[in-house]
Design a protein around this nucleic acid. Sequence first.
RNA 1: GGCGGCGUAGCCAAGAGGCAAGGCAGGGGUCUGCAAAACCCCCAUCCCCCGGUUCGAAUCCGGGCGCCGCCUCCA
Length: 516
Amino acid sequence: MSFRLHNTATRTVEEFVPLERGVVRMYVCGPNLYGPAHVGHGFSYAFFDVLRRYLEYRGHRVLHVQNFTDIEDRIIERATREGRGVAEIAQEYVDRFFREIDALGVRRADYYPRASETIPKIVEIIAGLIARGHAYRVNGDVYFRVSSFPRYLRLSGRSLEEMQAGARIDPDPRKEHPMDFVLWKAAKAGEPSWPSPWGPGRPGWHIECSAMILQYLGEQIDIHGGGEDLVFPHHENEVAQSEAFTGRMPFVRYWLHNALMKPPVGEEMHRHLGNFVSLQDALRQYSADAIRLFYLSAHYRTPVRWTDEALRASTRGLERLRTALTNAEEAIARTSDREDAGLTEPARRAREAFEAAMDDDVNTPQAVAALFTLAAEINRVADGALKGSGQGRAGLWVASDTLRDLAQVLGLSLQRPGVTARLVPALQAVLADVRTHAAELFPEPASTADPEHLIRTLLAGRERARARHAYDVADRVRARLGELGILVEDLPTGPRWRVASPDGREPSPDARQPRP
RNA sequence: GGCGGCGUAGCCAAGAGGCAAGGCAGGGGUCUGCAAAACCCCCAUCCCCCGGUUCGAAUCCGGGCGCCGCCUCCA
């Protein structure tokens, strides 16, 4: 089956065929660096990361470029207000952006151009547009002449007439047409500016993306992505500038737009509304995998609401996938059978269902469902193996390998968080505590600096306690470990522990420590 | 006003003419000292409402009701 994507330009799901066989040129609109990223940004980046991973899984080489808007009204406003440099603020948020998307497990794009570094290309394009009659100068400003571009508004499916009927702002009287948009803004006192044939100034917002695409990806690209709020005017204007400049169309073969995330309360999450959940806060409360599983729980064109309830549900669901892998490992370690116990076929079916779902306009909810179905099959066989049927070693290996591989395409690591050295003092305190109750059960461990060794020591002592029916001691160990976020489970094969906070949350390892 | 989207179980969410995926929560059971995990079973005769088309509709058509987005900045 072919890979199909919803193209905003046609509003239909189309078969995806890249311009150049085996190579996909993809550009995704990046952040305006005037403030922190929120979970809605994270959703967009994570979704396009999944798209990129799947394209690569399907054998394409993906050239991925994402911009940083580092010169723009809001950053300038902020710099002025705080008495700081524009570049300083931009750099602060670039650094933070990378910390956060790295923590989220978003693979980095091939290149992250900044508007301020793309000025020569921007000037070249504007000069070309003026020369071709697609743009005009008004004092130091330069505007795009929409009347010169008949295809204007085709992407967003509007008409100039209706746009004006619904206009919510007073048009600048200096413009030839109310819908003409700015390509170059003349410098104002105190603002950063660059020289140009029209005098010092800075680029308008839309032109940077056109310039970056032309500079780094070419005159025609396969995929251009971003939030659906960017369709108009941002992407519409990009099309106009780019196609008017190059004379080639389509500038973009497939326009992809993700739905916007809804805040816990209200309908729109926006930085300027102040109702956002920052990516940083999200990562402090939930693991990257849980956040990504939540993102993938709905189709990318369906708006989802960020709620603690939903994130906890995703954390639990994630735990189920991880447990399947753990169960498989334990079953494999305890069986010698070479038969597949009927798991090879379910693994193949899961991969087939996964690919069919992803092929259908990146239907991640269905793809995730395939993962859960496979996890259930793994658990079924692992359960049987641990209960003594002793079968399934080969099948468990194949099935868990498949689960890991498919999860990886979704950017899910399925890694359990480990215990950190920070827990050592607390674990030592637990040991000292139980030793006052039953020192004979808990001999001094060889090492008191390794958290895992301390946990093993405690659990070994607890097993001795259980063997003597000293359940008060055994339960005390389990309760104290539970307070530290370590869940103890007594399986038929012996005790097992894992990190799992009782409130259903699970911070991302990198985000646990508050920043200084 | 123009353009567009949505309404599926307690919650989240797929499905888009052939008889309702998956997750979370919940109930019963197996296992277990208990708890947890896992497994087994149960949990929408029905998909906002009313008409219509069809052998057959949650899916198509018509009409309602409700919610939301874009038309300034925004992932």
